[in-house]
Amino acid sequence: MPDTLVQDDLKPHVSPSQERWNVFRRNRWALLSGLLLLGLLGLALLGKALTAGTDPVIDSATVRLTQKMLPPFSVYNQDTIAKEDAPLFGVYLLGTDDFGRDLFARMLEGTFVSLTVGFVAVGISVTVGIFLGGLAGYYGRVKLGFLTVDTLIMRFVDIMLCFPTFFLILTAVALLPPSIYNIMIIIGLTSWMQTARLVRADFLALRDQDYVLAARSQAIPEWRIIFLHCVPNAMAPVLVSATIGVATAILTESALSYLGFGVQPPDATWGNILADGRPLIFDAPWLTFIPGLTILLVVLAFNLCGEGLREAFDPKLRESR
């Protein structure tokens, strides 16, 4: 930066990223949600560390048939249960379910699985969306036979939008063997259309920018121009829709669990704990309310965080404030 610019005070006072952060921070709900999600991420990793392996610190699968459906904060009974099956701190923090399994341990294990389903599904949909949207935008004018690349890809998007999404997911999940990977892949492969449209719209403007021309004049390979130079500039709307996408994926998984096609036991997710607890809502309300309110809280946090990001990245929403 030349001295004169600094002296004349012509340099912008705040960098764009700092400005975004300021806008995001002013939205108290979004900031709170962001912090909550960061904490949750830590909790999920901790939960994975504590419940994984052959000899976990907290075993979510321990069945204690003499201590079924105890309400939260019940003290564990030393007379009927062996010492090594005791819950953490000797207390069932969130109660036990109809097999006498510790709900706290199961929720902790489910945190990791549920978030994995959300993030991997969104990861897949964002990857496919950026790839197809980027190709459609960048090579839009290239002709393949009598159709342009753009027409070809965007017609494919139209075709995908014709399918009733949840029905398609349900069909695929029900016909394929039940596995957590299939669920993630199917949710991902049926939700990329929005991202593809957003990326294409950005690329239509980006492909004529000077820096793209400069990169081309240096004979930089086209895939590098697309994915290293253009994609980062088209990421903002994708990031927003991805944040909300994680929330949608978690909700879709819980809806699939309700229909019996979600993540199968012994893997615990919030969705299948909720679906299993629902028939017991009168006898053991905590089995419904704890996972239900957890999903509500986390999905709400993702949505509010996404709204905050949208405001931070969209100058149009900012100026009119």
Binding site: L251, I295, L296, N303
Partner: peptide, 26 residues
């Protein structure tokens, strides 16, 4: 825009879409 009414409404609509449908129905 920006009033308490608007903010409450925004929050409420996010609150409602964040509910797992079958939980709220129950």
């Amino acid at each position: 825009r920006g009033s308490t009414y608007d903010k409450t409404g925004t929050f409420l609509s996010y609150f409602l879409i964040s509910f797992p449908g079958f939980f709220l129905s129950s």
